[in-house]
Amino acid sequence: MDNIESLISKTIYKASLYLDEFRWDEWLELCDKDFYYSIQAFSPEIDKNMIYLDGTYDQMKSMTEMLPKHNTDRSPLSRHTVVYTIDVDHDKGTADSVSSLAVYQTQLDGINSHVLAGESNLFMVGKYRDKFILNNGKPKFIERITQLDTRRLDKGSHWPI
């Protein structure tokens, strides 16, 4: 039987796969209804931490449901996630985790697909700082802070990372 650290680790990897494959609903099923998501970065230019995108469970659900209505760069993003630490608080029934993250973009239609489609580039690096709530030994995301080191995102993206 898996211990809680192993279950948390599997949940993080499962989330990476769902996000890679645009399976937004399945990603959100890994999250508690009180889930909070954000993408953040520290700017040395203005000496401030910045929140690039954030939302509650409901806001992320509505945002992902509206994605098909938006024009977007459909070049897929692939996450390489490595879970570094998991700290479980058994008394509180919570856990914190830090994972290293690199995201690659494989060009599809972003600029000139005839020339560029198929080319993979590093899109961003950073860390996932996750919090979990443990219900009957089952972890669910209660918070994900995607803390980016990369601050030059050029065209950017419509998608949660």
Partner: peptide, 28 residues
């Protein structure tokens, strides 16, 4: 304010990404 700004104009906002795709493909 930050949320209002970035939900439209941040690197993950609804509008900025679309504008930047348009001018990139225009230049191409």
């Amino acid at each position: 304010r930050q949320r209002h700004h970035n939900s439209i104009w941040g690197p993950f906002g609804r509008n900025l990404h679309e504008d930047l795709i348009a001018v990139s493909t225009q230049q191409s």
